[in-house]
């Protein structure tokens, strides 16, 4: 009990410290990002950091659905694959440049998210998970079988290097790492804004108690679909980026194991948090690096980790609740500043 109190105090001072110096941290972060090309990272380091940022983004995508709204998806590799293929094929076959192709990947995947969300409305819990798992398998089948478009098992090769105002973005010059860091950061900012607006609030309410949400007049079906759409958009855009990492993609990049890896990031890091996604991604990407011998066994280890987490720390490693007060608006603070009147009108 006493120990818990102490950790709470520690957490509270840590959080207020972070909050107090948030602008300084933001500046340091931006400076660090800008200096990525000049850090002299080697190939292995660059790739590792790219994968961490990519999986942080994938985690944030799934987090909107699973962490915020409470709908568990085992099929996000499907969205990921769709995004990657749309982005790659538009460039290779239709001659689009990268940026519109990336946007199209997000938008098209969001549309598929809408389609998957519709039949999922009547399902909950494990049934929904099974449907999403089926979805992932269907995507896998299509990628393999629809050879005239997807090139089947051979995959899509020779995906061109993207350019930003004439500057090529490659792994070597750090441009690709910078790109995914920017994408992940934008995603994080978007998720943060979402969490602090009515849409995000309704997501969390649905996760906590769907019937009570309905009784507040909320069209829960609509918000579940919105959650699917946002989640799919982020995941599809992440897929669009992934098509650049190796310069080629093939169906086996987007199998069930990939779904599990994304879900592990969310659960290990901390459902509903953004910091947790970065932490979870870093942990799960570093793990195979530091234990090469266990590489073949990594999914066994992930599975074990998931079970242990669910059992002993369901909120995830960094899934603590904020100890800080709710950030009230000026209007609300003004009301609090007024002396309490006997008839402090409720209406």
């Amino acid at each position: 009990m006493a120990m818990k109190k102490n950790t709470n105090r520690l957490l509270s001072s840590f959080e207020s410290f972070c909050y107090k110096y948030r602008y300084i941290f933001a500046v340091i972060y931006v400076l660090l990002c800008v200096s990525i090309p000049f850090l002299g990272l080697n190939r292995v380091q660059t790739r590792l950091l790219m994968m961490i940022a990519l999986y942080a983004m994938l985690g944030m995508g799934l987090n909107v659905l699973t962490g915020y709204t409470g709908l568990v998806s085992l099929g996000h590799a499907g969205f990921y694959g769709i995004g990657a293929y749309v982005c790659a094929l538009l460039q290779v076959n239709a001659g689009w440049s990268f940026w519109p192709a990336l946007l199209a990947a997000g938008v098209f995947t969001a549309f598929i998210g809408l389609l998957l969300g519709l039949p999922s409305l009547r399902l909950s819990g494990s049934y929904l998970s099974i449907v999403t798992l089926g979805f992932c398998e269907i995507v896998q089948m299509i990628l393999k079988q629809w050879e005239s478009v997807t090139n089947g098992n051979y995959g899509v090769r020779n995906i061109p290097t993207p350019h930003f105002f004439g500057i090529p973005l490659t792994a070597k010059n750090g441009g690709l790492l910078l790109l995914i860091v920017v994408l992940a950061t934008l995603t994080a900012l978007g998720c943060l804004a979402l969490k602090n607006s009515n849409t995000g609030r309704v997501f969390f309410a649905i996760k906590d108690d769907e019937l009570a949400s309905t009784m507040m007049g909320i069209n829960t079906s609509r918000y579940k679909i919105v959650s699917f759409v946002i989640s799919a958009f982020i995941t599809g855009a992440a897929g669009g980026f992934y098509s650049l990492v190796n310069g080629y993609i093939e169906p086996t990049n987007f199998v069930f194991n990939t779904s599990i890896l994304i879900l592990s990031v969310v659960i290990v890091g901390g459902l509903g948090t953004i910091r947790g996604m970065v932490f979870g991604a870093a942990l799960l990407q570093l793990f195979p690096e530091v234990s090469r011998g266990l590489y073949e066994w990594r999914f066994v280890v992930y599975g074990l980790l998931l079970v242990l987490m669910m059992r002993f720390r369901p909120q995830g490693a960094l899934g603590w609740r904020s100890t800080q007060p709710y950030h009230l608006s000026k209007q609300a603070k003004q009301i609090l500043a007024q002396p309490e009147t006997k008839k402090g009108g409720a209406a």
Binding site: F204, A205, K207, D208, D209, A212, Y326
Partner: peptide, 8 residues
């Protein structure tokens, strides 16, 4: 009670 227990 049917609050949203994990929300403020």
């Amino acid at each position: 009670l049917r609050l949203f227990p994990k929300m403020r």
